[in-house]
């Protein structure tokens, strides 16, 4: 498979993730869509690491997974805080800065 195919696959994951973030109502699905965007970036890193015979892409994918783990922890914390205030995971309900 050529590199263009990998890049386009990564970009497709980015676009689907962007759609999920912008269009879905459930906060959990928004977080899962952000993971899709991370996966798209990871595919690009690994594809170029393999093509250019350079390990830096793999190192950055490991950092990317670490950042995704931190994002998941913060996102779940926000979700619990939102649920405690509004008793729903619907992002439309979160329209005030102060609970």
């Amino acid at each position: 498979m050529s590199t263009a195919a990998f890049v386009i696959l990564g970009f497709l994951l980015f676009c689907l993730g962007l759609f999920g973030v912008l269009a879905r109502r459930n906060f959990i699905v928004v977080l899962l869509s952000i993971e899709l965007i991370f996966a798209g970036a990871g595919i690009n890193f690994i594809a170029f690491s393999s093509l250019w015979k350079n390990l830096t892409g793999q190192i950055f994918t490991i950092f990317l997974i670490g950042v995704a783990a931190g994002e998941a922890a913060i996102g779940l914390g926000l979700l619990i805080a939102l649920y405690r205030l509004k008793h729903t995971a619907n992002v439309d309900e979160a329209r005030e800065l102060k609970g």
């Binding site: 109502r25 619990i80 995971a89």
Partner: peptide, 25 residues
């Protein structure tokens, strides 16, 4: 790790009204 965390999040925040409404803006 991360997927199990999300499954816990789904479990903790289940809401009948959100399940029955339209899922997109």
């Amino acid at each position: 790790g991360i997927l199990v965390l999300y499954l816990f999040g789904i479990m903790l925040t289940d809401n009948e009204a959100l399940r029955l409404t339209r899922q997109t803006h």
